[in-house]
Design a protein around this nucleic acid. Structure first.
Length: 805
RNA sequence: GCUGGUGUGGCGGAAUGGCAGACGCACAGGACUUAAAAUCCUGAGAGGGCAACUUCGUGUGGGUUCAAGUCCCACCACCAGCACCA
C-alpha cells in the first residue's frame, strides 16, 4: 500500500471538496458540536496535538456516520507570547508570523487527516475577530463588570507585565517561569469573583473527570463563615476605627488572644497617629513589600510580624482587650485582610504566638501541648467547648450556630461567603494583544469608545518592548495614543495596555457558529441551533484558567442576552500528556521530543494516529515509544489485504456475531474517546477474518465504516476501490440485538467457588436447563459425589457456582 | 498539610461484582529462505511436577459476598491540583 499517495489524495479531496462542512439549520439532521482547543500559533504541531485532536476527529467522523450534522472547527489563538517573542528577537512583524503560523498548522492538520470545517477557521488577532473581543469588553465595562483600580497585582519583572492569579500559579510567571512579585499598580480587573457561585454551578453541571472538577472547586475556593466587627481603641481608650474580620471558626471566638493584619492594609495609614512604634511598623511593611510571594511561601515555618503598640481591639464576645499585630502570613487579598488569631486552634496562630510570647486560651477540648487542635481534628469528633462562658459544655456543632447568632444579634457580625478566586487582572503591558476600547480622559476618567468605532486597530510600532517605567509599547505610538474624549471632546489618551492572551480564547467557540458575521458576535438563531459544545477536548493545564474564564464570559454573555445558553460546554475531556523517554511532558521545547510529522512521514497518518492512541487512554499520560508501532503497521497491512479475500454473499452466524460485537464496541468507544480498546476490537475482528480466510462484501463494507474514524485515509481508498462509492456518504450500519448473542457459549462451572471445568451450553438454555447440563458433566458429578447441595448460582452466559457441604 | 486520582506480567495496557492479564510489543521455539529481513504457526503470570495437575497471584493488612482488580475500612507508594485562604 502506497500510503503517501493515498493519504495525499484523500486529504486534498477532503479539503478541496469541503466534505466536512457543517450546515447551519440542517433540515433533518440533529446537531453535534465537537471542539478541540484551538491552536496556539507558535510553530509546528507536536505530539500533544495528536493526543487531543485525533479522538475528537474520530468522534466527529463517527457522529457523521450516525447521522449528525457535525460542527468540528479549528482556529488560531494568536495573540500573546510566541508571535511577540519572534517579533522582539527577529524583528518579524507579528502579523506575518501569525499568518505563516496559521498556514503551517492548517497544512499539518491536514497531514494528520483531521476533518475540520475549514470555512469556519478563525484567528484571534484578526481584526474581524478581535472586534468582538473588544465588544465583549465594552459590555463588561458598561455593565460595571470591568474596573480600573490601583491595587497589588502579580507582576513579572522579566516580562514587565501585570499577570492574573491564574497566570501566576505557584508564584511563577506563566510566560517565562520567573518568580512573580507583588506590585502596586493601576490595573484593569474583571469582576470574576462575583461569579464564584455561578462558576461552581457550571462545574456541577459539566460532564468531566472528578479530579478536574475538584481542581476547579479548589481554585474558586468558596467558604462560608462569619464576619465580625471589632472596635479599635487607642492607648487612652478612645475608639478610633473599626476592623472587620472573617472567620470560618466562629466557635473559637472566646480563644482570641491577638488579631493580625496584612501589612499592606490601607487601614494602617489611618491609624498612624495612634501607633506608637510607627517607625518599626513602617520598616516591617517595607520589608514585606520587598519579599516576593515565593519567599513568603517557602518560609512558612518562620513567622514574622510586628506589634502595633498603643492599639488594641475589644473582643465583642467577652469584652476582652486583644493586642494587634501586622504579620505577612495574613494575605491582603483574601477576605478583609485580617485574622482573629486563636493560637490553641490554628497552627499558624500557634507558631506566631509562641514566637511573640502571646498567651493561649484553649476553648475546645483536646491536647494542645505540642500543636494546635484544629477544626480538621475537633469537627469530626464533635468535641465540647471549654472556657467559653455560657457556651462551655456545648458541642462544636451547636456552639458554631449559637455563637454566630449571639454576635449577629449584638449587631457586630454577619454571615459571609468568601472565595479564594480573585477578580481577573486583565491588562498586560505588552504590544501583541487586543487594545482596550477605552479612552482615558483627564476630565471624564475612563470612557468607552463607541461600538461603531470597533474594531480599535492595534497600531504598527517599531519597538515591541515595554519601556523602563513598565509602560506598554503602545504608549510610544503617539499618533494612536492621543485622541479626543468621546464624552467631552477634549484631548485625551487611549489606554495603552492590551488584553491578556486569554481574552480571545474566552469566547471563541461562539464565533465558530457564525465566523463571518460583521453585525454581531454571532447570530442568535445560529447560537441557539448549535447550542453548547457537546464535547470539548484539550489539555488539563487549562482547567483552572481558560475553562473558568470561559464559564465566566459565557455566564455574563448569557445574562446580557447575547447568547442563549449559560453553559459553554456539555462535556469536557482532559487530554493526558505525551511523555518523552524521561517521563517528562513532550512539547516542542523538550529535547527528546518526537515530531508527529516525522512519524507520519515514515509510517503514514493512519498508523501514527492509531499507534499513539493504542499506547494508552485519552485521559491518561502516554509515554511515547516506537515500540509496538510494528503491531499497528502489520494490522494496517492485514486490513489492506482484506480486499483480496472477498468471497460469498451470506454472512455466517459466527461472523454476524463478530460484526455486531464490533459495531457495539466501536460505537461506545468512539463516544467515550476510548480509542485504545476500539483498536483492539478492530484487531480481534481482523484476526478472526484472517483465520477463516474470507470476508463477504457486506462485512467489509461495515468494517471499513467502523475503522474509518481511526484510519480515515486507507478506509476511504479501500471503500472506493471495492464499492466504487464514497465512504463519507455512508451511514453507520445497524445491528440486531440478537446478533450479539452466540448460539453456544462456554461457561465456567465452579463447585464451592472453585473452577472445576468449562462447558459449552446453548445460550438460550434457561437456568434450570443449564443446571441439568452442568450436573450431567462427569467432572462435576465427581466433585458433587457424596455431597449435599446447599445453593446453586447461575449467572447466564458466564458462570455456574454450586455450593455443597 | 489539604483535595482528587491512580497502583494489574519484562513493557504499553484490557476486564457492567462472575473464567484476571484481552489487544499489542518484546521474548522463546518452529515453518519458509543459501542466509537475513518480512511473513506465517506455536508457547508463555510466578513457583512446583515428565505429565494429567497443583499452589500462589491485581501496592499492603483486614472486612463484606457463593464470588472482589472491582465494594467497605485502615495503611503505603506514586501522580496531579491547591497551599500561611483565617
Amino acid at each position: 500500500m502506497d500510503f503517501k499517495q493515498i493519504e495525499k489524495k484523500w486529504q486534498d479531496k477532503w479539503f478541496n471538496e469541503k466534505l466536512f462542512k457543517a450546515v447551519d439549520f440542517h433540515p433533518t439532521k440533529p446537531k453535534y458540536y465537537v471542539l478541540y482547543e484551538f491552536y496556539n500559533i507558535s510553530g509546528n504541531l507536536h505530539m500533544g496535538h495528536l493526543k487531543g485532536t485525533v479522538p475528537a476527529d474520530a468522534l466527529a467522523r463517527y457522529k457523521r456516520f450516525k447521522g449528525y450534522n457535525v460542527l468540528f472547527p479549528i482556529g488560531g489563538d494568536a495573540f500573546g507570547l510566541p508571535a511577540e517573542n519572534a517579533a522582539i528577537k527577529t524583528g518579524i512583524n507579528p502579523h506575518d508570523f501569525v499568518a505563516n503560523g496559521l498556514k503551517t498548522v492548517i497544512a499539518q492538520s491536514q497531514k494528520i487527516g483531521l476533518s475540520f470545517d475549514w470555512d469556519r477557521t478563525i484567528c484571534t488577532s484578526d481584526p474581524e475577530y478581535y472586534k468582538w473581543t473588544q465588544w465583549i469588553f465594552l459590555q463588561l465595562f458598561n455593565h460595571g463588570k470591568a474596573y480600573k483600580e490601583t491595587a497589588k497585582v502579580n507582576f513579572c519583572p522579566k516580562c514587565q507585565t501585570v499577570l492574573s492569579n491564574e497566570d501566576s500559579q505557584g508564584g511563577k510567571c506563566d510566560r517565562c517561569g520567573s518568580d512573580v512579585v507583588q506590585e502596586e499598580r493601576q490595573s484593569w480587573f474583571l469582576k470574576m469573583r462575583e461569579y464564584g457561585d455561578k462558576l461552581l454551578q457550571n462545574v456541577d453541571r459539566i460532564q468531566m473527570a472528578e479530579n478536574l472538577k475538584e481542581a476547579q472547586r479548589n481554585w474558586i475556593g468558596r467558604s462560608e463563615g462569619t464576619e465580625i466587627t471589632f472596635d479599635i481603641f487607642d492607648e487612652k481608650g478612645n475608639k478610633v476605627e473599626k476592623l472587620d474580620i472573617y472567620t470560618t471558626c466562629v466557635e473559637t471566638v472566646y480563644g482570641i488572644t491577638f488579631v493580625a493584619l496584612a501589612p499592606e492594609l490601607k487601614l494602617l495609614d489611618k491609624l498612624k497617629n495612634s501607633i506608637k512604634n510607627w517607625t518599626e511598623v513602617e520598616k516591617y511593611r517595607k520589608m514585606t513589600a520587598l519579599r516576593s510571594e515565593f519567599d513568603r511561601m517557602s518560609d512558612q515555618k518562620n513567622k514574622t510580624g510586628c506589634k502595633l503598640e498603643g492599639l488594641y481591639v475589644i473582643n465583642p464576645a467577652n469584652g476582652r482587650k486583644v493586642d494587634m499585630y501586622i504579620a505577612d502570613f495574613v494575605l491582603a487579598g483574601y477576605a478583609t485582610g485580617a485574622v482573629m488569631a486563636v493560637p490553641s486552634h490554628d497552627q499558624r496562630d500557634y507558631e506566631f504566638a509562641q514566637k511573640f510570647n502571646i498567651p493561649f486560651i484553649q476553648v475546645i477540648e483536646g491536647d494542645t501541648s505540642s500543636q494546635a487542635v484544629e477544626k480538621g481534628e475537633y469537627l469530626p469528633k464533635n468535641s465540647k467547648l471549654i472556657n467559653s462562658a455560657e457556651f462551655s459544655g456545648m458541642t462544636v456543632k451547636d456552639a458554631k450556630v449559637k455563637i454566630a447568632q449571639k454576635l449577629i444579634d449584638m449587631g457586630v457580625a454577619r454571615k459571609k461567603v468568601n472565595y479564594k478566586m480573585t477578580d481577573w487582572a486583565f491588562n498586560r503591558q505588552r504590544y501583541w494583544g487586543e487594545p482596550f476600547p477605552i479612552v482615558i480622559c483627564p476630565h471624564c476618567g475612563e470612557v468607552a469608545i463607541s461600538e461603531k468605532d470597533l474594531p480599535l486597530l492595534l497600531p504598527e510600532v517599531k519597538d515591541y518592548m515595554p519601556n523602563k517605567n513598565g509602560d506598554s509599547p503602545l504608549s510610544k505610538a503617539k499618533d494612536w495614543v492621543n485622541c479626543k474624549c468621546p464624552k467631552c471632546g477634549r484631548d485625551a489618551k487611549r489606554e495603552t495596555d492590551t488584553m491578556p492572551n486569554w481574552a480571545g480564547s474566552s469566547w471563541y467557540w461562539l464565533r465558530y457558529v457564525d465566523p463571518h458575521n460583521s453585525e454581531k458576535l454571532a447570530d442568535f438563531e445560529k447560537l441557539k441551533y448549535w447550542g453548547s459544545v457537546d464535547c470539548y477536548t484539550g489539555g488539563t493545564e487549562h482547567i483552572t484558567r481558560h475553562v473558568l474564564y470561559a464559564f465566566f464570559w459565557q455566564n455574563f454573555l448569557y445574562e446580557i442576552g447575547a447568547v442563549p445558553t449559560r453553559d459553554p460546554f456539555v462535556r469536557k475531556m482532559g487530554s493526558g500528556l505525551v511523555l518523552d523517554d524521561e517521563g517528562k511532558k513532550m512539547s516542542k521545547s523538550s529535547k527528546n521530543g518526537v515530531s508527529p510529522l516525522e512519524v507520519i512521514d515514515k509510517y503514514g497518518a493512519d498508523v501514527t494516529r492509531m499507534h499513539l492512541h493504542f499506547l494508552g487512554g485519552y485521559e491518561d499520560n502516554t509515554p511515547w515509544t516506537y515500540d509496538g508501532i510494528k503491531g499497528i503497521t502489520s494490522f494496517v497491512d492485514k486490513v489492506w489485504s482484506l480486499q483480496d479475500m472477498i468471497k460469498g454473499e451470506k454472512i455466517s452466524d459466527e461472523h454476524r456475531f463478530e460484526l455486531a460485537s464490533l459495531n457495539k464496541k466501536a460505537g461506545e468507544n468512539y463516544e467515550n474517546l476510548k480509542l485504545n480498546t476500539a483498536i483492539s476490537a478492530m484487531m480481534i475482528f481482523v484476526k478472526k477474518i484472517k483465520e477463516d480466510g474470507f470476508i463477504t462484501k457486506e462485512e467489509l463494507r461495515q468494517f471499513l465504516i467502523f475503522l474509518n474514524p481511526l484510519a480515515p485515509h486507507m478506509t476511504s481508498e479501500m471503500f472506493e476501490r471495492v464499492f466504487g462509492e464514497q465512504i463519507t456518504d455512508q451511514s453507520w450500519p445497524d445491528y440486531n440485538e440478537k446478533d450479539l448473542v452466540k448460539n453456544e457459549v462456554e461457561i465456567a462451572v465452579q463447585v464451592n467457588s472453585k473452577i472445576v471445568t468449562r462447558i459449552v451450553i446453548p445460550s438460550d438454555a434457561d437456568n434450570q436447563k443449564v443446571l441439568e447440563i452442568v450436573k450431567a458433566n462427569d467432572k462435576i458429578q465427581l466433585a458433587l459425589k457424596d455431597k449435599t447441595i446447599v445453593k446453586e448460582i447461575v449467572v447466564p452466559g458466564r458462570i455456574v457456582n454450586i455450593i455443597v457441604k
